[in-house]
Nucleic acid binder design. Structure first.
Length: 422
RNA sequence: GGAGGGGUGGCCGAGUGGCUAAUGGCAGCAGACUGUAAAUCUGCCGCGCGUCGCGCUACGGAGGUUCGAAUCCUCCCCCCUCCA
């Protein structure tokens, strides 16, 4: 292998958990170079939830690396398989989605992945375009290539089986269809999270039985979520979406436990292993405060998905709000409401969408979750001693401008107008 | 098809006639504290109403018994186990 190809190989396998079989992958790279034929890199995503988060960004950033080396990324929108629901890593069947839901999600998916991938160099295909055409006999033929016990080898299936959680037949079909995708796009390599290992290998087997050269598989680590314990996922709510506002992205990044920030630096923010080492050394030697390191991480992430200016602004804002406990004048939301819509503090909170119900408004104010920073009359509401808070929700508002802190993170400048704003 | 077990609030899971809007855990929210939206501690955690109060809705579904049912009865639906 020539040195520059060696370097490409090293870069491509960096951060990967598994590359199987590794020798085959090296061989594919060599042949690709010799025949001047880019490798076809398959990545499939089921548009089952509309948000792509930093966890997804790990393999997608890896795809970008392949792209930068001139390989062909084949991005499969699993619009058909999303209607089945991938059981990977789940202890229960997923709800199946309707075609309309899937289509809507698919559109937002593409918008988001092109924040990372090069749109012009990405082949986007929908697996409905071949799966929809499969009739029953073709499906049965596909099913005849795998056995029940082969399926039960998969950890999440056998643990569900052992603990008597139902497994539906259609869930067994899922890996087969995903594998069939590999045949359809003639993949040389398929990328996925470590939880996808089984499915990726099924693709390999099916290609072989179809007479195609089997794909290699590459698995990327699952990014741990904001809680520092579970994998990042939409359903656990421990994620940072790549389309989130700079504000939320920054704040959420600051909330992660210190120990996991190195992983984030490397997998989500694109820092090299050497860089992470030196940041770590800075922390251990006490040269840099952990908050500043995390601040740097947060700024890098915001820069990646927004821009450097937004990163700077949010960093300053975060300091004002949480470290100095000031009202963040320039970045606070500004809202105008008619007095008729918000005759009382409770109504205002509901109107702003800060709370879901009147009872919640009641609790929030009673617990001191609403503070007033300024005129017209701080004594009018909030900042009351606990005993006086009971009736706060019902306090009548006067026209004027209020600077409010609602809950832990929301700052709003509300102008209450005597008449309708229009 | 047969036998047995089970369906409780976002999730897990107590509860077998009134003391149950329903123990407990998780998640969530708020307060204190903190470099932090972390950890920890404390409180809250169905909905509506001019506050401690009143009303409404709720324990798979539909009926029924009872002054009163998540708890008893009937039918139905669904899940799990074993046997075929």
């Amino acid at each position: 292998m020539p040195p520059d190809l060696r370097a490409e190989f090293e870069e491509l396998v960096s951060n990967a958990v598994d590359v199987l079989p590794l020798a085959d992958f090296a061989d594919k790279l060599v042949r690709s170079r010799r025949e001047n034929r880019p490798l076809r890199i398959k990545y499939g995503a089921d548009p089952s939830a509309p948000d792509i988060h930093l966890g997804h960004s790990v393999p997608i950033r890896k795809l970008k690396q392949f792209q930068d080396h001139g390989h062909q990324v084949v991005f499969i929108i699993g619009d058909y398989t999303a209607r089945i629901g991938d059981p990977s890593g789940k202890n229960a069947a997923r709800p199946r989605l309707t075609k309309a839901e899937v289509d809507a999600n698919a559109r937002t998916y593409l918008e988001q992945i092109f924040k990372i991938l090069d749109r012009d160099k990405t082949e986007v295909v929908y697996n409905s375009s071949w799966l929809e055409k499969m009739d029953v006999s073709a499906t049965i033929e596909l099913m005849s290539r795998y056995t029940v016990s082969q399926m039960l080898e998969r950890e999440d299936f056998h643990s569900r089986f052992d603990s008597e959680v139902p497994i539906y037949i259609h869930e067994f079909i899922y890996p087969l269809l995903q594998g069939y995708d590999s045949i359809a796009v003639r993949a040389d390599l398929e990328l996925g999270g470590t939880d996808q290992k089984f499915n990726l290998l099924v693709g390999r087997e099916l290609q072989r039985s179809e007479g195609q050269e089997p794909q290699c598989i590459m698995t990327m680590p699952l990014l741990v979520g904001l809680d520092g314990a579970n994998k990042m996922s939409k359903s656990l709510g421990n994620y940072i979406g790549i389309s989130e506002s700079a504000r939320d992205m920054f704040g959420k990044a600051m909330s992660i436990p210190d120990e996991i920030m190195w992983t984030y630096f490397e997998l989500a923010a694109g820092a090299s292993a050497a860089e992470v080492e030196s940041l770590r050394a800075d922390l251990e030697s006490g040269r840099r405060h952990p908050r500043d390191l995390k601040d740097e991480l947060a700024r890098r992430l915001v820069t990646l998905y927004h821009d450097a200016e937004a990163a700077r602004r949010e960093s300053a804002d975060f300091r004002a709000r949480f470290s100095a406990r000031e009202f963040p004048e320039e970045t606070a939301e500004r809202v105008e409401v008619a007095l008729a819509d918000a005759p009382t503090l409770g109504r205002l909170l509901t109107h702003l969408g800060a709370v879901k119900s009147a009872r919640e408004a009641q609790r929030l104010t009673e617990q001191g979750g609403v503070k007033v920073f300024s005129e017209p009359e701080p004594a009018l509401l909030g900042n009351h001693p606990q005993e006086d808070r009971a009736g706060l929700v019902r306090i009548a508002l006067q026209p004027g401008t209020y600077r409010l802190k609602i809950g832990k993170t929301r700052f709003v400048t509300v102008t209450v107008l005597a008449s309708d704003p229009g």
